[in-house]
């Protein structure tokens, strides 16, 4: 499985990857992007099986990236891993087709619940 992690923080990209390893996705191929513009380009070029994206990023946010992909007719399985947790953000994420929204701080159990279908 190919997993794209989109986050402007190198530390968070590493932590997200570590959580994936902990829940049994360690054999996946991990690729990275640092904002929504890069993420959208990588998604179109490499078609990852799953995208784990931050919400707030420079250049283009995660939700803007997902909405832009929808507008371009690009289908992607995407979940957010973000500091945002207000209901309006979850509603907007689900409306745009996101599979889940994991709020920080999180642990392996949170990841297991959200990503269970991919393990």
């Amino acid at each position: 499985m190919k997993i794209l992690i989109v986050d402007d923080s190198k530390a968070m990209r590493m932590i997200v990857r570590r959580q994936c390893n902990e829940i049994g996705l360690g054999e996946s191929e991990f690729i990275e992007a640092t904002n929504g513009v890069e993420g959208a380009a990588v998604i179109k070029e490499q078609q990852p099986d799953l995208v784990l994206s931050d919400w707030n990023m420079p250049e283009m946010s995660g939700i803007e990236m997902l909405e832009a992909l929808n507008a371009d007719g690009v289908s992607v399985k995407l979940g957010f891993v973000t500091s945002e947790s207000q209901p309006s953000y979850k509603d907007r994420a689900i409306e745009a087709g996101a599979l889940f929204l994991i709020s920080k701080p999180f642990n392996a159990e949170t990841f297991r619940r959200a990503l269970g279908q991919f393990v």
Binding site: S9, K10, N56, E84, S85, Q86, K104, P105
Partner: peptide, 21 residues
């Protein structure tokens, strides 16, 4: 890397403060 981590700690804490609003 320290800048990245301190920024992320502020981001996570700020996000949780915002969740109470």
């Amino acid at each position: 890397e320290i800048v990245d981590v301190v920024g992320e700690l502020a981001n996570m804490t700020g996000g949780n403060v915002k969740a109470l609003l």
